[in-house]
């Protein structure tokens, strides 16, 4: 009888550790963050958190710095994602063709992805150094005007996008390469019979069949780009003049530099809603597209 109970509940018992882990490490922190977001608290041991209702949210929604951070986050995300997807697909297509040294090339392309973001942030900071950095030396060598890169409020965010593209395009390429491997050959043979050109085949066969894969890759990357923190913190810390302050950086500043835990929490709740919303939109788009080609 005892064994029966165990057997009948096996699925619960085996999933329990994972469920407990999710509850303790994910659900609890999120709910706690939501709770704190209604309080004013500086982590004090003497003054307890003070209930302020929706005040934190109201202050944030009226805060120009918050909206600046929303703008920076969106710009960074959209631009980085767009470039990464286009480049990633292109590189994947190149790397699936046969040529000598293909495997070496593949490995080299994947290297940036496995490096530590903070360390890379520091390296890029040196590359971008306006007086002694490699980026300007290169520009000077080809006769172009040296740039300020991270030190200019106008160029800083684009410079960071370059770093992100350098580091994460390989991930898109990797997923797309896997997708390419699953495309059957018969549509291409049929197209050859019909006399289709290379471009035609790409537009009408490869791209449609690859779309679900690209969407998955883009979605994974979207969530990651949105919460980019390390490279920004390691290079500009949100500067100059707040030009690269994304929601994550502002949240960090509010929490650990201003010690406004309530405000930081409400910012994170809003950020959570934003990530959630964008992901839902992406899933919905993917469903619609899949429907179209089925």
């Amino acid at each position: 009888m005892q064994y029966n109970w165990f057997d009948r509940n096996l699925k619960w018992i085996y999933t329990m550790p994972a469920v407990i882990f999710v509850l303790v490490m994910m659900v609890f922190p999120i709910l706690y963050t939501v709770r704190i977001s209604f309080f004013e608290w500086s982590m004090s041991a003497i003054t307890p958190p003070k209930w302020v209702g929706l005040d934190n949210y109201m202050t944030l929604l009226k805060d120009t710095r918050f909206w600046g951070a929303v703008r920076s986050t969106m710009f960074f995300t959209v631009a980085a994602l767009a470039v990464e997807v286009v480049l990633g697909v292109a590189i994947a297509l190149l790397l699936t063709r046969d040529f000598r040294g293909k495997n070496v090339m593949k490995t080299i392309f994947l290297l940036p992805m496995v490096s530590t973001p903070v360390a890379m942030g520091l390296v890029w900071q040196l590359i971008y150094e306006p007086t002694i950095g490699a980026a300007n030396m290169l520009l000077k060598a080809v006769g172009l005007k040296p740039q300020l890169w991270l030190a200019s409020p106008d160029q800083a965010i684009s410079s960071l996008i370059i770093v992100d593209v350098w580091q994460w395009t390989p991930m898109i390429a990797l997923i797309v390469m896997a997708g390419l491997a699953t495309i059957p050959t018969d549509p291409y043979e049929a197209a050859d019979v019909d006399g289709a050109g290379r471009w035609r085949k790409f537009i009408s066969i490869t791209l449609p069949l690859l779309k679900p894969t690209i969407m998955v890759a883009a979605m994974l990357r979207l969530i990651d780009v949105l919460k980019t923190f390390d490279i920004i913190y390691a290079t500009t810390q949100g500067g100059p003049n707040l030009a690269t302050e994304t929601l994550n950086i502002y949240g960090y500043v509010l929490g650990f530099q201003y010690f406004k835990l309530g405000m930081a929490s409400s910012l994170l709740v809003l950020f959570f809603a934003l990530v959630m919303g964008l992901t839902i939109v992406m899933i919905w788009m993917r469903k619609r597209m899949e429907g179209r080609y089925e």
């Binding site: 306006p130 007086t131 300020l148 030190a151 200019s152 100059p240 003049n241």
Partner: peptide, 11 residues
């Protein structure tokens, strides 16, 4: 020097 806007003491 150029880029001083993004300099703390180490730079």
């Amino acid at each position: 020097p150029p880029g001083v806007l993004n300099m703390s003491w180490p730079q």
